[in-house]
Design a protein around this nucleic acid. Structure first.
Lengths: 356, 356
DNA sequence: TTGAAAGCGCTAACAA
DNA sequence: TTGTTAGCGCTTTCAA
């Protein structure tokens, strides 16, 4: 397939016997140009099927109107929703979003960041991989004068001059555990996640804080670290089971972890929530269909994406001032069939579920 | 935040007192340059924190190494998986993926396509919105000499010179319905989807074909059109119910439709699969957790994404030849607790579910 | 109101 | 092996 060389400003200019500059201005609605010329130019441009060359424009304008984004995964409810919000918000503000996916791999993350810098994006929004420990690359990006904003997941070490839009993991965990305590549980465990990464650490700190507030002992063997996936939940629950004394309630670090825990619990011949009750951090679109329907700490993914982009654009536009901004988006607890105590459950049971 | 003007080839060249071209070649490993110079150049580039300007390179090279992608939604299991495969495959081939999301809106789709052309992507991979009827924009892209490839969803009207990588919707529907027939059902309905779009049309054609093959009557009122969402399944089931005579088995056009159907069925006081059995087209990652676990026609999303990119790259690389390529990716039926008949179900029941 | 000149950072073709 | 010349398509500045 041969690629026709595209129509350029010059082509239009020649046709109208005016200069390239006139055409450029006319097309952009620059006030310099007379209405008549503008109309003429527009007409010819349309006739010729002119498509402005973004690349050339960027090169010349030294700003790209592109936002670079790096996320760990895409086929994933949480990131899928956040990214959707990012796209929509950026689109409204006439920004193009360049998305890259690290697959939870620090090396790939590095490469993507380099590419984004190469593309001269106006800012980089990133949710770091679980592997990421080295912050050198982020410092480098900052040195290049490109704003960096972490959403949801930040590196352990600080990155001077960067911004954050985070979920209130600490507060959310407290909400979940206090709900469990309110319903009468005292044997409470946490499964999944690890303190290597901020979200894991803060959820655990919240978990511990809630226990402390209510004078409950924190048994170290009842904090089962792992990843954030279903396998981790399954393994974690099995590990708890081997310990002998089972907890009554489990705070799962993520939604997939909860699914794994439930799977394991069932395979042990125990019932959820009667024998082992559970609340998890995070949710999914299938939430109303799993049995039992899970109560969870919901993260406002929309808000997260919107705020990430808006904050980034503010930083880009007010380039002189200090670039650091730090936002925390609150969570809220949604109660369904777990973590609500027997009475509430019985009261709920007779109702047919409603479609959402 | 002030943006440092980036280090350029010239900066490196000046430092070494060589020409810009030498540096350019050295950095790209061009065989012209001596090893010594290459090393020197690399060293200085690293010292200075040089990052090549992709934009400038593209402008000069007249090829962007970027693939444009337009999909209708992103927070959606099917598209999420396809896009992930697209990203990975493109990444391996050193291509950047520029993703845009139409939100099932034809106007937004148009704009995104224009932007992608403006960015001079080397090819556009698109899954059209449900609204899309006008193919003019695609013809325009073709005229610009940019290859167009439709994945999964194509427009109704043909686009000369475009390629397709599609799911075998027709065959998949037949698989599902023949399974139902094999298990002994004869009162079979289809819910969701509409013939406006290829995937809806072909699933319906497959549905009808399967009935015909087995001499079963196709009752028009048992094909309930709608969208592809949960609401549509709910509404469709309710509509069937109002008809009086209920079918025994429902072929749901998509996974969400199936969820809606199940929701509705339950709210009518009927059991799935005992009273109303069901198989659907498509799946989700939560599939093992819903009750009952749904049997479904699975689309190979990986394969779809991989083939889309590989086919596109072939077209780009062999630009002289005829650009049209047409692939169909087969589906396969995965049986779980629905659509398998009572005996199989009873045989299955005692086993604990395995984690996947 | 219009346009000429210069340059954004890079690469390809050709010369030295 | 290295460098010169000439763009890629556009925008900005400043003069006409």
């Amino acid at each position: 397939m041969k690629r026709k060389s595209h129509i350029t400003l010059d082509d239009i200019a020649k046709r109208l016997k005016v200069s390239r500059v006139t055409v450029s201005k006319a097309l952009r609605g620059h006030p310099d140009i007379s209405e008549r010329t503008v109309k003429l130019v527009r007409k010819v441009a349309a006739e010729l099927g002119y498509s402005p060359n973004f690349i050339a424009r960027n090169l010349s304008a030294r700003r790209s109107n592109m936002l670079g984004v790096v996320i760990p995964k895409i086929a994933h409810f949480f990131f899928g929703s956040v990214i959707e919000a990012i796209y929509n918000t950026a689109f409204e503000q006439k920004y193009e979003t360049i998305l890259t996916v690290s697959q939870e791999n620090a090396e790939r993350e590095r490469k993507h960041i380099q590419t984004l810098v190469s593309m001269r994006v106006d800012g980089i929004i990133i949710s770091v991989s679980q592997q990421t420990t080295d912050v050198e690359i982020f410092n480098w990006v900052r040195q290049m004068g490109i704003p960096v904003l972490f959403v949801d997941r930040t590196p352990e070490l600080p990155v001077p001059g960067s911004s954050t839009v985070l979920v209130d993991d600490h507060g959310g965990a407290i909400q979940a555990v206090e709900q469990a305590i309110a319903v009468g549980y005292s044997k409470i465990a946490m499964v999944g996640g690890n303190p290597q990464i901020n979200i894991g650490k803060n959820r655990q700190l919240g978990f511990e804080e809630a226990l402390r507030r209510h004078g409950l002992p924190a048994r170290p063997e009842w904090i089962v670290h792992g990843g954030f996936g279903k396998e981790d939940g399954y393994r974690g629950m099995m590990q708890l089971h081997q310990l002998g004394a089972l907890p009554e309630f489990i705070f799962a670090a993520t939604y997939p972890v909860a699914l794994g825990v439930i799977e394991a619990t069932k395979s042990l011949g125990l019932r959820v929530p009667q024998d082992i009750d559970i609340i998890c951090f995070g949710e999914s679109d299938m939430i109303d269909f799993i049995q039992p329907s899970l109560s969870c700490v919901v993260q406002n993914t929309q808000e997260l994406g919107i705020k990430a982009v808006k904050t980034m654009l503010e930083i880009i536009d007010h380039s002189e001032e200090s670039p650091e901004r730090h936002l925390i988006i609150p969570t809220h607890l949604v109660l369904r069939e777990t973590g609500i105590g027997e009475q509430a459950r019985l009261a709920k049971a007779p109702h047919a579920k409603q479609i959402v």
